[in-house]
Amino acid sequence: MQSAVENTIPVWPFVAYGGIVLILVSLILGLSYVLGQRHKDRATGEAYESGIVSTGSARLRFPSQFYLIAMLFVIFDIETVLIISWAIAYQEVGWAGFAGVSVFIVILLAVLIYEWRNGALDFGPDGRKILRAYKKRRKNGAANLHDYTDIQQQQAVL
């Protein structure tokens, strides 16, 4: 076991600091619990939605876009982990290591290009798509301008 952590710096200040932080945080929350006032009114227990009485569940379903971001993060962050381990040792592994990481990063970039082209990186509403959908609805005669703004708003919120 040849770790540097053990023999250079003591661990206890870190632990002490962490302990104090925890105590502090719980103290603040505890104090405010003790000190804070209580009251009960007609609308106290209702969710705040800008003054409008809330309807429906708050457990919304989200566009898969969010899921995609999570996946992108998971994948690229893990890649980062691998890059990090190279970055600390790049001096030792030299140009061979550099070449290796370059291949790795090129693959990463290829993945990025792939994601990009497939629209995984387009997070907002796609103007052209909306326009196409709108035109289609117009053609079907079932649409009016109101619907169009609906779609737009829906997508703009997320």
Binding site: V106, I107, A110, V111, I113, Y114, W116, R117, N118
Partner: peptide, 10 residues
């Protein structure tokens, strides 16, 4: 595999 991915992207 990588190239075909790019190919799909293109």
């Amino acid at each position: 595999a990588v190239i075909s991915m790019l190919l799909v992207a293109i």
